[in-house]
């Protein structure tokens, strides 16, 4: 019996097993990161703009945004996953499956990326903002043409970090039937003592993370002229 349980999937049969899981994981990563990037960017710009040294300081708004971000970041992802099931159902119509994982991933990671964005924007020298204002730029023009453009390397670098974190959290997708490499590793590798599947998923995850990190670094290097 133990031999049956411990039987590792032969290497030749691993790919058919991995392939759908890989597809699910990639979908989760790419879609979640894209949505998180857009929402986090907006939230981060708002945080920075309404902040004390921002282009339009609005302390009450800034405090409220800070609170929302703070709450979002302090709830552990596995708890969030369960806690926002009604919201998930509202958005994608189901609380199960890959698309149902994207919702909590976005909800969980947007506050994180928003803080990364805020930090990057804060790094842009104040003198540049003054220069743009002195040249007659509106606040929106200053944000778009100067602040965001100068912060771009930091924004891309931060998005890479966010993506890697999303890869990690997407592994928990299995708990809501979301599939993906994480779920595969738990189902086969852990529950069935299938060492080969475990090894294959781990290697694949490492490769995915490295590839995205490499791509992110490459973009940062291309757009940075410091």
């Amino acid at each position: 019996m133990s031999t049956v349980l411990a039987a590792a999937t032969p290497w030749g049969e691993i790919w058919p097993l991995l392939q759908p899981a890989l597809g699910q994981t990639m979908a989760m990563i790419v879609v979640s990161t894209a949505i998180t990037g857009v929402l986090g960017l907006l939230l981060g710009v708002l945080l920075h703009t309404t902040g004390r040294d921002g282009l339009r300081p609005l302390p009450p708004v800034n405090a409220l945004l800070g609170l929302v971000v703070g709450i979002g970041r302090s709830v552990p992802f596995i708890v969030l996953l369960a806690a926002i099931i009604p919201f998930t159902r509202l958005v994608v119509g189901t609380s199960l499956g890959t698309s149902a994982v994207i919702v909590p991933l976005v909800v969980g990671m947007t506050p994180f990326y928003a803080r990364v964005v805020e930090g990057s924007l804060r790094e842009v020298p104040r003198g540049l903002v003054e220069m743009a204002r002195a040249a007659g730029a509106s606040r929106l023009q200053t944000t778009l043409k100067v602040v965001l453009r100068e912060a771009a390397p930091g924004l891309v670098g931060g998005l890479t970090i966010t993506l890697v974190a999303i890869v990690g959290f997407s592994a928990m997708a299995g708990t809501v039937g979301g599939g993906g490499l994480g779920a595969l590793a738990i189902d086969y590798g852990y529950n069935r003592y299938d060492g080969n599947v475990m090894l294959a998923t781990v290697v694949l995850l490492v490769v995915i993370v490295q590839l995205f990190q490499f791509a992110g670094d490459l973009v940062v290097r291309r757009i940075s002229h410091r």
Partner: peptide, 21 residues
């Protein structure tokens, strides 16, 4: 004021150039 500032050129101690351009 934004329009009026366009008739004033300003140069700064640190030049304040955009590193990305």
């Amino acid at each position: 004021l934004q329009a009026a500032r366009r008739s004033i050129g300003t140069i700064f101690q640190s030049a304040n150039l955009l590193s990305s351009r």
